[in-house]
Design a binder for these strands. Structure first.
Lengths: 252, 252
DNA sequence: CCTACCCTGGCACTGGATGCCATACACCGG
DNA sequence: CCGGTGTATGGCATCCAGTGCCAGGGTAGG
């Protein structure tokens, strides 16, 4: 009994199978229709006040089947988010790009997943804001992406002990993504182009810091020094060297 | 009805009051004793199998009072973690240090909180690993720190639009902290000095990247150049500046 | 002593979640 | 055409977390 029995059920990555492809049963209510019905009830009556019985009735199925297919009430709200994660994880694993770029593209994919489906993601955001438990769940989804990104970076960047920098970079990507995502969720009517521009800016910031991190990584900190200078394109070269010289002097 | 009624209960920051100071009731079981009893039952019988009735009996109180004081079964497991957060948040708010240093010290305080109380934090880690729901909860706590750090940095670093970089820096601090924390949780028998050495290394990495981020912040990205130099500690300063000068020339 | 207040415990109830079993439908070999 | 198998479903019973309500008992203050 090393870490205790795994009696728990599911939460985020529940093992409820969903046969979205292949030959289905006779008159099976589509997952999306169930989600939409649930979202409508949640926003109308509140999350707590909405019962699984009510959702089942609205979706034209039995309470029992609802539990079987989604696992829990929360899982209905996050069902499509779960699918998105699966998609993104598969994309990442198959990407031939440079690791950092692959992760940035994956983050782009996540944002795209939100923007594409405001009918679900926007009401969900409102619900998440109002209910701490749902917020926890949303945060857990975010952490899941972060863990996947971190693992991916650690694996691809060379195995030995790069987990710290991989973790930091992954956290930066997620934080930057969330920054842009939240700004859109607060005002979904905003022009999509502006959102994507913000996303590019954010990812540029991440790229710069990531390069710093990956350059520093695993060097003996006492022996090496690291200098990072960021300066406008037109800066006078001599002035720049003076300031760098001062910084180096002070550091040593 | 803008964001829906707040009918939710609590989750992380529940409003259950705890009168740890002042004159208490006659034979009130201390919070810590309840937590220890619960942790014991959780690890012995599993989290799901342990009922609130059982915990109440083990703690010498009624089921009803247990709910009143802790809010939920999960909240018992994370009660002391909640207290830690309160402490850290207060410390941060009162800190006169430079913002980045204050946040690093706050992270140190969190790690200290874990190391100081392995009797609770280690079994909790095992439980969290085995149960997705508890893992979500742990992640939510982490996110709470991150949000507090981010807000603190955005407020102190100058209000205007620094939220992106503040978010990225906060995420980095948290990621680095968690990296060290997890390594200890996996092997709590390890020498504390080694843990703190790792923590210092991790925070050094964060400090460097953070300086990058905070320097870049909000500059027009197309006009900026980034220079990263890694060099042995004893390098001749003039030679270094010559090479940097050459690199800059070539870049522009 | 009486009252106001607070903590506690008992009781009942809602509803999420699970296990068990019977049913209905599709597929498949005979 | 028919019986067997596998699967999704629905109904039913049950467990238990969580909440509201109310009564009991202790303390502080008048």
């Amino acid at each position: 009994m090393d870490a205790g029995p795994v009696e728990g059920v599911s939460s985020v990555g529940n093992g409820v199978q969903e046969r979205s492809a292949g030959r289905n049963g006779p008159s099976r209510t589509a997952t999306r229709d169930v989600v939409l019905a649930a979202v409508r009830l949640f926003t109308e009556d509140g999350f707590e006040s909405t019962t699984m019985e009510g959702i089942a009735t609205a979706a034209g199925m039995s309470r029992r089947s609802l539990f079987r297919r989604f696992g829990s009430k929360e899982d209905i709200l996050f069902a499509e988010h779960d699918e998105l994660f699966t998609t993104v994880a598969a994309y990442l694993e198959a990407s031939p790009d440079e690791p950092l770029e692959a992760v940035c593209s994956a983050a782009r994919l996540v944002l795209q997943g939100y923007l594409r489906d405001p009918e679900v993601t926007v009401p969900r955001y409102r619900l998440v804001r109002a209910h701490p438990r749902l917020r926890d769940r949303e945060v857990a989804m975010t952490a899941r992406y972060q863990a996947a990104f971190s693992r991916f970076l650690a694996d691809r960047e060379g195995a030995e002990g790069r987990s710290l920098s991989a973790g930091v970079v992954a956290a930066s990507v997620i934080a930057a993504h969330n920054h842009v995502l939240r700004s859109w969720l607060r005002d979904p009517s905003e022009d999509g182009r502006r959102v994507w521009a913000r996303f590019d800016t954010a990812m540029d910031l991440v790229r710069r810091t990531a390069r710093t991190v990956l350059a520093v990584e695993e060097e003996p900190p006492s022996a090496d020094r690291v200098l990072v200078a960021v300066y406008p394109g037109g800066t006078d070269r001599e002035a720049l060297l003076r300031r760098i010289g001062a910084a180096v002097e002070q550091d040593s």
